[in-house]
């Protein structure tokens, strides 16, 4: 059975103007307990790669530039 790609709106948003991943920052990717953040190869910025979030907030709390916003996942908002 082939796979389909289903869209889903992700709860964690990164402000690209503030994110300094291109300077080597990986803090949010490092701390996330669910390991769902990645650095985009296209933009060189952090983004949520997997919609598997406990809305717990270490990513936002530890980001040195306050670039991360954690929203409540849509299904339970």
């Amino acid at each position: 059975m082939p796979l389909a790609t289903q869209p889903s709106t992700v709860p964690v948003v990164v402000d690209n103007d503030k994110c300094i991943a291109e300077k080597g920052c990986r803090v949010c990717v490092d701390v996330c307990p669910l390991d769902v953040l990645r650095i985009s190869e296209m933009t060189n910025k952090a983004y949520m790669a997997y919609d598997e979030c406990w809305y717990c907030m270490p990513c936002a709390a530890d980001c040195p530039t306050q670039a991360v916003t954690v929203n409540i996942p849509y299904l339970l908002k």
């Binding site: 307990p33 669910l34 406990w54 717990c56 996942p73 299904l75």
Partner: peptide, 15 residues
């Protein structure tokens, strides 16, 4: 499964 249906919307740390 939480009633929201979201797999990671658990009481416990979802890890």
């Amino acid at each position: 499964l939480p009633t929201s249906g979201y797999l990671y919307g658990t009481y416990e740390n979802a890890a």
